[in-house]
Design a protein around this nucleic acid. Structure first.
Length: 683
RNA sequence: GCCCGAGUAGCUCAUUUGGCUAGAGCACCUGUCUUGUAAACAGGAGGUAGUGGGUUCGAAUCCCACCUCGGGCUCCA
């Protein structure tokens, strides 16, 4: 008697009774048996050694799939815990899930001790021993009572068991935080745990790789503090991060990739390219923009203004501080004060630096009675805001305490809301595409569980509006429950950069609350007063962060239209200076940012100096060029291909090519030339 | 804010367990050289070793506090 097993390719196979997933893999092919880590039995992940039943639909999970890597990482986390508990018998352990590219495990050492780098090395060798011993992972099931006894020495495990066996009604907090506990939970009523080696056992849903011998390619990365269950009111645990892969090659590749990412670090490039700096005397999260950084920023901002005006926005300005009265009405003092700088007491009033621009735009709206004919009213401002970020959170341009938003508030009728949001999505993606981004991920964030204002019905209405727009725009989106702003739900757009990292840039937020709080009205067709809807939105988000992302995306090699210095002219010798100046003048007259390097350094040296600045074009001019009115063009090479030097290019031809390229880059007809900045070619 | 780590010249880094006047390369300044596609040569200037305290005959080095930065947690544009 055999059993019939159905495979994903619709075929089926007959196996002997009692056959396991491993038997099935071996029956199909030896190479599959080698790569198999676990199976999906009727859609549920389970260990390879589980017995199959007649009629099961089985999918074999191999080590070269995302699911397989996740299993490897989860199992490696267990080995990490095993190593730590062996080396530190007094330690206790909490959770250890797989994450992108790796895993972590949280521990607590007695007396608040922490791990050092030396400890990591020791732990790593202990893990290698465990891997070498090729211990089998064995699945066990028990009930919560026995489990509590088994894990009696480990309070965090007991807490997990209790959470699992007495699930509290889904309340706000639990729902948001339970995700990271999922891997520890059980797959039903029973509590499952795994044992391997002589005396290691850990709570786990599984599945695991068959044995520790499958976990050869890992590396421990760093130690960090992490709050138990991500709650800052609870204990700070010691988290060890690691990475794990299916082959030595993948591991190596990943480590190299990390180095590549470090080379793009905008803080490093900002210094090397003289774009901006963060002087200590300013305080954390505050930067000064040097001329070259400011030049690029100006191009970005001018581009933004032009696009907004073309899209029917009106530009406005507002002050950087306002009295407490305004922030009281807006709700910021009640719901956002933690992130606000403290007040300045002046003339008997309290003035707060603005953390957002919205209240000012609200006042602009309410300065006169509005008619429905004026809606949608789209107010746009490059508004600089100040937010008191936790000192441990600031990070270069990506997270500062003062930054400028390309902020806008759209006032419209409820009927107009859907079309506006839809148009906004489109506008946002179009702007981001012009800066060289082409992969996006959208996210819908709903009402925060704790701090928020407004009626449920209004939140409901706003959330539905956003959802409808996303669906109409056929955007795939994820939902972040409780991730909204205090005044309304939002859509966030993440972009992927050149090396695949995601950055959150755009945000579109619907708000029924501020119009309510400020009692905004417009006169409708029926000559009655109605409440407008307000849409908050920033496309690049923070110009500062956007610039940081651009630096990393382009690795400092900005496309022509953004490059602060587009062309540098190098005369071969002193005798060629005049011609070099003439070349530079002509390029400048054509509207490009050009510089003549007439220093007395050797040519090779001057080329190198220009190359390290990642300039798009270096022109070398000498005797032959003077005779023929030509230039030698040394184009910036890309990461993948080295460019060749082209001698004898006619100057006018070079300039027309430049013009074409600048237009192509910006992908728009908007004139981004702002060479008034530098007043042409410079000696 | 919390946990861990780090802070030596503008930048990258030396200064072995505490011990001579804290060194080097690049960058900068001066001079020589006048150059055809990624680093000419010589000289000079530049540091209260993050700041403050302590231990010691003696501190960049050991201890404490604070500041800043990095990696995380939390939070977020």
């Amino acid at each position: 008697m055999g059993i019939d097993i159905h495979l994903p390719d619709k075929s089926s196979r007959t196996l002997n009774e009692g056959a396991t997933g491993a038997d099935l893999a071996a029956d199909i092919s030896t190479s599959l048996a080698k790569k198999a880590l676990a199976i999906k039995k009727n859609g549920v992940q389970i260990d390879l050694d589980v017995e199959l039943e007649n009629g099961d639909a089985i999918e074999i999970i191999t080590d070269d799939t995302e699911e397989g890597l996740e299993i490897i990482r989860h199992s490696t986390a267990h080995v990490l815990a095993q190593a730590v508990l062996t080396l530190y018998p007094e330690a206790t352990f909490a959770i250890g899930p797989p994450i992108e590219n790796g895993f972590y495990y949280d521990f607590e050492l007695p007396d608040g001790k922490s791990f050092s780098d030396d400890d990591l090395a020791a732990i790593s060798s202990k893990m290698a021993e465990i891997v070498k011993a090729d211990q089998k992972f064995v699945r066990n099931e028990t009930d919560s009572k026995k489990a509590l006894k088994l894990f009696s020495k480990h309070p965090y495990k007991c807490e997990i068991i209790e959470t699992v066996s007495n699930p509290s009604p889904i309340n706000s907090d639990g729902a948001a935080k339970s995700g990271d506990l999922a891997s520890e939970m059980t797959s039903g009523d029973a509590i499952t745990y795994y044992t391997n080696g002589d005396n290691f056992f850990d709570l786990c849903r599984g599945p695991h790789v068959p044995s520790t011998g499958r976990l050869k390619h890992f590396a421990l990365e760093k130690v960090a503090g992490a709050y138990w269950r991500g709650d800052e009111k609870r204990s700070m645990l010691q988290r060890i991060y690691g990475t794990a892969w299916n082959s030595a090659k993948s591991l190596k590749q990943y480590l190299v990739q990390l180095e590549e990412a470090a080379k793009r670090d905008h803080r490093k490039l900002a210094r090397e390219l003289d774009l901006l700096s963060w002087p200590e005397s300013l305080g954390p999260g505050l930067a000064v923009w040097h001329p070259k950084g400011a030049l690029i920023r100006n191009i970005i901002e001018q581009y933004s203004r032009d696009r907004h005006i073309a899209a029917g926005y009106d530009q406005v300005y507002s002050p950087h501080i306002a009295k407490s009265e305004l922030w009281q009405t807006s709700g910021h003092l009640d719901f956002y004060s933690e992130s606000m700088y403290p007040a300045m007491e002046l003339d008997g009033a309290s003035y707060y630096p603005k953390p957002m621009n919205c209240p000012f735009h609200v006042l602009t709206f309410s300065s006169s009675q509005k008619s429905y004919r004026q809606l949608p009213l789209r107010l746009f401002e490059l508004g600089t805001v100040y937010r008191y970020e936790l000192s441990g959170a600031v990070h270069g341009l990506m997270r500062g305490r003062g930054f400028t938003q390309d902020d806008s508030h759209i006032f419209c009728t409820q009927e107009q809301m859907g079309a506006e949001i839809f148009a906004l999505l489109d506008f946002s993606l179009s702007v981001l595409r012009d800066f060289g981004f082409d992969q996006f991920q959208t996210k819908l964030s709903t009402r925060p569980f704790e701090k928020s204002v407004g009626e449920d019905s209004l939140w409901e209405l706003a959330t539905t509006g956003l959802k409808d727009a996303l669906e109409k725009a056929e955007q795939d989106y994820t939902i972040d429950e409780g991730g909204g702003a205090f005044y309304g739900p939002k859509i966030d757009i993440d972009v992927k950069d050149a090396i695949g990292r995601s950055w959150q840039l755009s945000t579109i937020q619907v708000d029924f609350n501020l119009p309510e709080r400020f009692d905004l009205t417009y006169t409708g067709e029926d000559s009655q007063r109605h409440r407008p809807v307000m849409i908050h939105r920033a496309l690049m988000g923070s110009i500062d962060r956007f610039f940081g992302v651009l630096i990393e995306h382009y690795s400092g090699a900005f496309p022509l239209w953004l490059a602060p210095e587009q062309v540098r002219v190098l005369p071969v010798a002193e005798a060629h200076q005049d011609y070099g100046q003439k070349v530079a003048d002509e390029i400048s007259a054509a509207g490009f940012r050009v510089l003549l390097d007439s220093s007395d350094q050797p040519l090779g040296k001057r080329i190198r100096s220009a190359k390290v600045l990642k300039l798009p074009y270096i022109l070398v001019v000498g005797n032959e060029d003077i005779a023929a009115n030509t230039v030698g063009v040394n184009e910036r090479s890309t990461e993948n291909e080295k460019s060749e030097v082209k001698r004898g290019i006619v100057l006018t031809d070079f300039i027309s090519e430049l013009k074409k390229e600048a237009k192509l880059d910006a992908n728009t007809d908007i004139d981004t030339d702002i060479d008034t900045q530098k007043g042409g070619a410079k000696k």
